[in-house]
Nucleic acid binder design. Structure first.
Length: 445
RNA sequence: GAUUGCAUAGCGAAGUUGGUUAUCGCGUCGGCCUGUCAAGCCGAAGAUCACGGGUUCGAGCCCCGUUGCGAUCGCCA
């Protein structure tokens, strides 16, 4: 038996200012190594930092040219003040003057398949994904996923602070949220099962327990879409809550949530924001527009007549995004009152507007990032609506039971993490905001 | 499922009307360089032009097929 004292030796946050002129030892990966006759510069990738080391050939135990890019090294040296221009390097106000470098490991390849040492990665999206374990090491790729990580965390932090309880619903399910189409089938001990396309049923059931719940988890879509805004597996940021004032409660809380996330991004990701050269919006108001109004605005502005269409075309979303930026000074537009026929059966109709629902999409920079709305909460209403939609109730018994037990007025929304990340980071394809994207062609790495 | 485009060295690209040895940048390798920050300078190696067939005196380039990939639509977040 060994009794070991607990310490913080694995903490990875470094008080650089307090280490000035002091000797330090760090283990890191070689991001880049620029060799010169007098020595050179070693750019070292540490947890949370990319730090510059200075090598003086005369006082170093090894030759700088023997240090391999993407090798792992243990360096010992003294922290000195500095002023570094490279935005990928942080901290940029100090550097380590090294005296000892131990190479712990080296790549086994003679030549790495892509060059991660330059300012831009400069690869096709296909190569980028094929060589993902390497390409993700590029500072700009790292930045995307640090931003994604903060969004994920702050989504949970904000909701937890506002009385929501985190839930983890099953991903192996008996039925999909829409009735069984376009979902991945799998063998479950000889029975047919599916990968969950949405936590919808479970988060509703949990509203009956906690009143306010959220979940951040993957969902699976078997649709053969092949576009720059679709993934077959993505992270869905979901909430579901009791409503006091109808579905406007959802729009209020989503706006406050995004405001919180954006403010935290500015606070925690200033290096990444500067490196990517992106702008995080300031949220200071809510702009809503009814579904039918969007068709009218698009018609008035462009002459393109989508009136009578039961959904928004991607072109319309882009146009209304531009229009909102120009005329309403906002990048976030809530489009409300979508047609009943285009919304799932659990969506509540607006009793004052024939054929329209108490639901909305949130468009950010002209792309849909959220669908939300008020749900039916009376058992008989479900039976009626499902009949009208041609759905049999048998497959949904496990779900529908909750409405027999009594349910409050409630609603929720789902936010696509990769879509939000890619729009914030100015990426041209949502897959670039997925670590290891799954699309119609890609199953690995 | 539909429309459209692309495939040239490890990576990213150029290649004219079909014409001799396929060009450039990065990376790699060798040499040089006292502070870089997409480091710099000199040199070298590296290509079955995706695969199969066809037209032609001659194909990276034109045609057909196959495979792989990108973009767009439907659908969605």
């Amino acid at each position: 038996m060994n009794e070991i004292a607990i310490n913080d030796s694995v903490s990875s946050f470094i008080e650089w200012d307090s280490l000035l002129e002091k000797e330090v030892t760090f283990t890191g990966m070689v991001q880049n190594c620029r060799v010169s006759s007098w020595g050179g510069f070693l750019i070292l990738r540490l947890p949370n930092y990319i730090v510059q080391c200075v090598m003086d050939r005369n006082s170093l135990n090894i030759k700088p040219e023997d240090i391999p890019v993407e090798g792992c090294v243990k360096v010992t040296g003294t922290v000195k003040a500095s002023s570094i221009k490279d935005k990928a390097i942080h901290p940029n106000n100090c550097e380590i003057h090294v005296k000892n470098i131990e190479v712990l490991s080296s790549p086994s390849l003679e030549q790495l398949p892509v060059d991660t040492t330059k300012k831009e990665l400069n690869v096709n999206i296909h190569t980028n994904f094929d060589k993902r374990p390497l390409t993700l090491r590029h500072p700009k790729e790292q930045a995307i996923f640090r931003i994604s990580s903060v969004i994920f965390n702050e989504f949970g932090n904000f909701l937890t602070d506002n009385g929501f309880t985190r839930i983890c619903s099953p991903k192996i399910v008996k039925t999909g949220a829409e009735g069984g189409a376009n979902i991945f089938k799998l063998d479950y001990f000889g029975r047919e099962a599916y990968l969950g396309q949405s936590p919808q049923f479970y988060k509703q059931m949990m509203v009956g327990v906690f009143g306010r719940v959220f979940e951040e988890a993957p969902v699976f879509r078997a649709e053969k879409h092949d576009t720059s805004r679709h993934l077959n597996e993505y992270i869905s940021l979901d909430i579901e809550m009791m409503l006091e004032n109808g579905f406007m409660d959802l729009i209020q809380i989503e706006t406050r949530l995004l405001k919180h996330i954006f403010e935290k991004l500015k606070e925690k990701c200033s290096n990444e924001i500067a490196l990517l050269g992106i702008e995080i919006p300031t949220v200071d108001k809510i702009v809503t527009v009814e579904f039918d109004e969007v068709h009218e605005i698009v018609f008035k502005e462009t002459g393109k007549d989508y009136r009578g269409e039961k959904d928004l075309a991607p072109e319309e979303e882009t146009l209304i995004g531009e229009y909102a930026k120009k005329n309403w000074n906002t990048e976030l537009v809530f489009v409300t009152h979508y047609p009943t026929v285009k919304r799932p059966f659990y969506t509540m109709d607006d009793s004052t507007k024939e054929g329209r629902t108490l639901s909305y999409d949130l468009l950010f920079r002209g792309m849909e990032i959220t669908t939300g709305g008020q749900r039916l909460n009376v058992y008989e209403d479900y039976l009626e609506k499902m009949k009208a939609f041609g759905l049999t109730t048998e497959l949904f018994e496990g779900y529908l039971q909750v409405f027999q037990y009594g349910m409050p007025p409630h609603g929720g929304f789902g936010l696509g993490l990769e879509r939000l990340t890619s729009l914030l980071c100015g990426l041209s394809n949502v897959k670039e905001a997925s670590l290891f994207p799954r699309d119609i062609n890609r199953l690995e790495p």
